Simulated scan of single mutants.
Amino acid sequence: MQCPAHTNRHGSSPIGPVAQSEGHKAALPDKVYVTRRDATRRRLINESEIEKEANEFGFIVQELSSIPLWHQIAIARHAHTIIGPHGAGLSHSVFAKPGSKIVELLPIRDGTYQPRLNFIRLSHIKGHQHVVWYENQKIGFDPWSINLDEWKQFMKKQNILR
Rank of each mutant, 00 (worst) to 15 (best):
S123K: 01
Q20T: 10
H128F: 07
F59D: 01
T81M: 12
I82V: 15
V61C: 03
K152I: 13
K156H: 08
N46I: 12
S13C: 15
S12K: 06
A5K: 08
T40G: 14
I82S: 06
A39R: 03
S48Y: 01
V132H: 02
H80Q: 13
L117V: 10
Y134C: 10
A79Q: 09
Q114T: 11
A54Q: 03
Q2R: 08
I120D: 11
K101G: 00
S48V: 11
K97Q: 14
H130N: 10
A19C: 04
Q62T: 07
R9E: 12
F59Q: 03
R121D: 13
L44F: 11
R41K: 13
N147P: 03
N159K: 13
K126L: 12
K52S: 13
E63W: 01
A76P: 04
T81R: 03
W70I: 05
S100T: 12
N118T: 15
W70M: 06
L122H: 11
L161F: 15
K52A: 15
G111W: 06
F154C: 05
L161Q: 01
A88D: 07
P29N: 09
A76Q: 08
S12N: 06
T40F: 14
A5T: 05
A74R: 04
R37G: 11
N8V: 04
A74C: 13
N136I: 01
R37Q: 14
R43N: 11
P29L: 08
K52D: 13
I83T: 07
E53P: 00
W144F: 13
L69T: 11
I45W: 11
I73N: 06
K138D: 10
I75V: 15
G11L: 02
Q114V: 10
M155R: 00
Y33A: 05
A79R: 05
V18M: 08
S123G: 15
I146K: 01
F154V: 01
D30H: 08
H86L: 14
A88P: 04
Q72R: 10
A19W: 00
D30K: 11
